[in-house]
Design a protein around this nucleic acid. Structure first.
Length: 597
RNA sequence: GGUCCCGUAGUUCAACGGAUAGAAUAGAAGUUUCCUAAACUUUAGAUUCGGGUUCGAUUCCCGGCGAGACUACCA
């Protein structure tokens, strides 16, 4: 914030004047003063002891006196051990609030023609099963990250690479042909992605059964797998698909279209979207050319069996297969191909992959390979690696049926929100449509905030049995505060109170009010930080702090009953700006805030 | 075996190397003549262990213990 920079500059000048030493801005540690102490900002003086050659207390005292005499923004100071607590002059706070109030998009850096272009890949589902809790974290993080990058002045292209080909898809197709021919999403009343997922499970069930029977005949596990007729059929189908067999491709297209319709519904409910979707079926042959190029340049090498490899032992990694002996691509080859396609399509300055941390190794390798192949962006690619969502009993396992389905989860959250709202009597004066909308906003807000407030890199635990809280550090708590501020502002408008654009600098504020302004101003640096660290959690935790502080403020001061008109207007403007920041910050998380609830 | 992550109140999460490690929940006790009580106030409770670097370590380094991921000619 502005005041901080100003004082920071004064400190640098002060050290020079007092001790003749040059210090960098990085050495000036200005942090918010802890609640137990008097002051707004605290300077840690330990880094300056070498220059001052005095005790921490004396050094702090000297710097404090210098600032008091030379920096008008500093109104008072006190020294505790090596910490110099500074009190900022009241007029600065009013000026700061006036500044924030004059900017409808405070803290947001505008995107211009010259802004760098960031491509963010996220979601990237398989078309053989519906989205689950892990995808929910991916989607929410990806969408929020895109919003945060935009807020930091980047052009953003959101992209999704759909894994729509391969043996797993064939399994669903085969199961449908064998045990469900004629069934459609309409006839079954199921969402397309769920229907296909069911067939995938059905295949697995029959396959397991077959293996069991083969093993009963005395075959080993491996022999049984090799002899499985079902698996052989699936493989045959994949070959037909790759050969462009009309019937197989037609079936594949039809079933995929069901899945996409299902996914679209889920994405819509979740509130996420994409600017450009790539399909693996259209890109999986790309990359081969690049690998051959690398082979010619001598970056890669060919083994006797014809397979192509990259030797990464020089980078501390292993050898990596890029083309099978039969010349077909693997995952890595495809990622090289899609990278090339994307850079052909867009002038990308930075590429961010939102992919779980189980693929850390893959992206480490990809980065090196792209770099070796001469892609300028290779080294700079960002693998936004997020942790797993675990259940109390451990990792989600589809085989054990412990997967939490995304659609079910969202429906349940909305349902719970409805029940809680009803119990609290919040829905009494609403039409069914309004009640529905509020339940949805609150239920989804609760889920989104629950996931986004956690440091993305860390694994997190989700307990489906204990539904997500609506009290405390939660989405609804923030939404509620927002709605309440809206209500106060509505009442003020009804009373005909007109708010001025600028507040007079002479207004005397309490400590609490100054703290609120300080907190508000921090929004800008929080957004910067979140962009730099790729962490929506910073935004979430900041908003919570702001809201918690505001709630106490709200209770301590009766805004509308304040008799001093100037003060009343100040508090209304402060409240309006808190609401503005809440709305802005929550939108960076992809969470709606209702004006009434 | 190798590489990489992680370990903080009962639980879920915080803490650029900075002051007495913060919140929320669950527990105990309170606050509705008052702008929305999904709120507020009080209370009790934690850094896996052992070294090192530092004025100062939850944070950085080394080692032990514990949990997880990766180490596929799957994607």
């Amino acid at each position: 914030m502005v005041i901080e920079q100003q004082i920071s500059g004064a400190v640098i000048a002060g050290i020079k004047a007092l001790y003749g030493a040059e210090v960098t801005a990085a050495q000036v540690q200005l942090q918010q003063t802890k609640k137990e102490f008097t002051g707004h900002l605290t300077l840690v003086v330990f880094p300056f002891l070498r220059a001052s050659k005095k005790s921490p207390e004396l050094t702090a005292q000297a710097i404090g006196e210098y600032l008091l005499a030379n920096e008008p923004a500093v109104a008072a100071f006190n020294v505790i051990k090596g910490f110099l607590n500074l009190t900022v002059a009241p007029f600065c706070w009013i000026a700061l609030l006036n500044d924030i109030n004059s900017q409808p998009t405070y803290g947001i850096v505008p995107v211009t023609e010259q802004s760098p272009l960031v491509m963010i890949e996220y979601s990237s589902p398989n078309t053989n099963k519906p989205l689950h809790l892990g995808h929910v974290r991916n989607n929410l993080l990806g969408f929020s990250l895109a919003e945060i990058m935009k807020a930091n002045g980047n052009k953003v292209v959101k992209t999704n690479i759909v894994n729509d080909r391969g043996i797993h898809i064939c399994k669903s197709m085969l199961a449908w042909q064998k045990w469900g021919e004629g069934v459609t999403p309409e006839s079954s009343g199921k969402k397309g992605d769920h229907l296909i997922g069911d067939f995938y499970v059905l295949f697995d069930k029959h396959y397991k059964q077959e293996l069991k029977e083969l093993q009963a005949q005395g075959l080993t596990d491996k022999e049984a797998e090799a002899q499985s007729a079902l698996m052989a059929e699936a493989r045959a189908m994949l070959l037909k698909w790759e050969a462009g067999d009309k019937e197989v491709v037609a079936l594949w297209s039809m079933m995929n279209s069901w899945v996409y319709a299902g996914f679209d519904e889920t994405y819509k409910m979740m509130g996420v979207d994409f600017d450009k979707i790539y399909y693996e079926s259209q890109t999986y042959l790309e990359g081969k050319g690049k690998v051959m190029e690398g082979l010619e340049k001598g970056v890669f090498y060919r083994r006797e069996d014809g397979s192509v490899w990259a030797d990464l032992t020089g980078d501390g990694l292993d050898e990596k297969l890029l083309l099978r002996a039969d010349g077909t691509s693997v995952y890595m080859t495809q990622d090289i191909g899609t990278a090339k396609l994307r850079y052909d399509d867009y002038p990308i300055n930075k590429m961010i992959y939102v992919v779980g941390n189980e693929q850390n190794y893959h992206f480490q390798v990809l980065s090196i390979l792209l770099d070796k192949l001469g892609f300028a962006f290779g080294k700079g690619l960002v693998h936004f690696s997020y942790g797993m969502v675990e259940l109390p009993e451990g990792k989600m396992k589809s085989r054990e049926g412990t997967v939490v389905d995304a659609d079910d989860l969202m429906a349940e959250m909305i349902n719970t929100a409805h029940e809680v709202s009803q119990e609290l009597g919040k829905l009494d004066e609403m039409t069914p449509a309004e009640a529905e909308a509020i339940s949805r906003t609150v239920g989804l807000g609760s889920l989104k905030y629950f996931i986004l407030k956690v440091d993305p890199r860390k694994n997190m635990t989700f307990n489906p049995k204990e539904s997500i809280d609506f009290n405390g550090n939660t989405g609804p708590f923030i939404q509620y505060t927002y709605a309440r501020i809206c209500s106060v502002l509505r009442k003020a408008a009804e009373q005909g109170i007109a708010l001025p654009e600028q507040l007079p600098a002479t207004l005397a504020l309490s400590e609490k009010e100054e703290t609120m302004i300080q907190l508000l101003a921090d929004y800008a640096s929080t957004v910067r930080e979140a962009g730099k660290e790729y962490s929506p959690a910073f935004i979430a935790n900041y908003i919570y702090d702001l809201v918690k502080e505001y709630n106490q403020f709200y209770h301590d001061f009766s805004i509308l009953r304040e008799e001093n008109e100037e003060l009343k207007k100040f508090r209304l403007i402060l409240s309006a700006n808190v609401a503005k920041i809440i709305k802005s910050g929550m939108s960076l998380l992809g969470i709606d805030v209702p004006e009434r609830m």
